[in-house]
Write a protein that binds this DNA or RNA. Sequence first.
DNA 1: GGCTGCGCATAAAACGTTTTCCGCACCGCT
DNA 2: AGCGGTGCGGAAAACGTTTTATGCGCAGCC
Lengths: 347, 347
Amino acid sequence: MWNSEGVDAISVRPARIQDVAAAAGVSVSTVSNVLNRPERVNARTAERVRDAVAALDYVPHPGAAGLRTGHSSSIGLVLPDVANSFYSRIARGAADAAYEHGYSLVLCDSGDAPEREQGYFTMLVEQRAVGAVVVPLSADPTRLSRLRERGIPLVLADRAMPAQEGCSVSVDDIAGGRIAVQHLLDRGARDVLVVNGERTIRQCADRYQGARQAVRTRREARLGQVVAEEMTVAYGSEIAHSLDELPDGVFCTNDFLAAGLCRALGERGVKIPEDVQVVGYGDLDIASFVGTTLTTVRQPVEELGRAAVEMLLDEVEARAEHAHEARVFAPGLVLRDSTRASSDAPF
Amino acid sequence: MWNSEGVDAISVRPARIQDVAAAAGVSVSTVSNVLNRPERVNARTAERVRDAVAALDYVPHPGAAGLRTGHSSSIGLVLPDVANSFYSRIARGAADAAYEHGYSLVLCDSGDAPEREQGYFTMLVEQRAVGAVVVPLSADPTRLSRLRERGIPLVLADRAMPAQEGCSVSVDDIAGGRIAVQHLLDRGARDVLVVNGERTIRQCADRYQGARQAVRTRREARLGQVVAEEMTVAYGSEIAHSLDELPDGVFCTNDFLAAGLCRALGERGVKIPEDVQVVGYGDLDIASFVGTTLTTVRQPVEELGRAAVEMLLDEVEARAEHAHEARVFAPGLVLRDSTRASSDAPF
DNA sequence: GGCTGCGCATAAAACGTTTTCCGCACCGCT
DNA sequence: AGCGGTGCGGAAAACGTTTTATGCGCAGCC
């Protein structure tokens, strides 16, 4: 009645493989063969079939196919919070890779709730997901058992795992700490302070270890450390105010800390980078938005997501000859004003 | 051989409904009934069945079920880029809602590529997705036809749509512009400048319209506008430098612009908020990280994602009595230093 | 005592694929 | 003529569910 013509489509039943077979004057098996193993069928017949497919706008039903073949074509991506930019960048890389390989990505945002993470694991088991990329809430390996015991392959992201247990991808935080401090030393700093987060956090401990390694290469260099309760702008600022004697180089293990520290130093009349050089970590948005833009350590996070999916698919598709691998990515340094002597206006 | 005992699980075939039936000494239909319409079956039998389910750790195969019932339980989320915080917040809200209702969310990141967006539409059609939430690349409605003609219900996000075409969710940008400027006027500003983006962008046009509405309520107030080529920190800064005479209130239609503008004004020796009050838009991370934190307009973005999914599910589950709706959300004001007279240290 | 109706459980037919045979026609060879 | 290939195409059996149509026993009612 008042419907325009497009709307009648909502009642049309999608074409099945049978319909295609009928239209092309062949059997269903032939249609299936044309679609999945074209080499098995005569070129002329194949052509006829493909015409029919196009004419009917046939799209195969992967659910039905999966029923027969035993596996779906979706992979799970489990992470604590997509709204967090670190995780959303992982998601981006994973989505790209999944798309390129023709898999669909199921977004499982555990919202920092362990029971919800478990719920998603169950859901993935139900769906017979072909595998999962997991950025786990905690390092506790038993939480992964639900997937393990169902034989769903998984790749851990941002968390290393003994290689025989499965694949994992992560960034080399020790190297990150090393290049950050190395850079400060290269630019003449001799008295380096590390503004760190809680050392129980693996990343923080690693970055500090890297810093120590860098300092060891120079006789005359000294390293200090101060630990912030939380890695926020506010604490970075507070630490800058509480400093008695100034170092000539500061390595903040997080860009928030660095941003707060830079601002507070500025308020104290300290010039950056002339008096103190500062390196941050993470290349978060804030690093380039802040007054004096931050030299910082950039992590190839999208690569992490992409690699995780690709390793997962290798495991899925190769099965037998797949060897587990713990891939670690190298971070890189992004040079900006906070360690650059001549600061040409970046805009 | 060298495998620990957990590993044999990878070969165990998941229990089917048949196995449960056998274990409970009933027929498959009874098991199915226990699971889907418990009221149809005797309480004692149901109990036996449930025990068997638990004992075998049976999980139903939604693919197979979907084959029979004709629809899957997954919904698509199509957006231009999850790494962009606006979209990732939508994703977060959508994921929460989907989880609560027992649906799984398929992440479709079109990466700003129209053909990839189409590819995802095709994929969703294949999977017989029950519906989709779409943040479209452009307003061109024909791109959605692929889903439409297959009768897949969809909800548009961040983009209004004639209500009879389907549901949509969006934020009221006119109201956003209005409250921003209203706030400036309330705090005594009389000469208000709007730093806007390209007016071909609907959001920009709307926010400016809201600004005009607010100014109209005060006889003595005046409104000016300057348009930035891009809505970035750099352009905000540039505009601040190019200003001849200063207004006493500035409304930037984006926090990046506001951040750049504030910094540049500071460099010119202008005090914020004493000399000029500034309001941003979006409540992006940058708004609270920047030197003088930004008063800004906050959009309930997670709510957008959540509502979109819920409206979609209403359409899916109610079918007949569902009425399309174009829901628009009200933005709110977040008060921070850039319009606050007495600036107590926020830390 | 034969009906009807009710409460419960089951058998069997779908759903749309893939894949394993198997058959058929044709070819070239002894 | 008989034989083994080979190249193509088809029939039919799975895959794991849901759902429709029955079946069966038993109570209540004329």
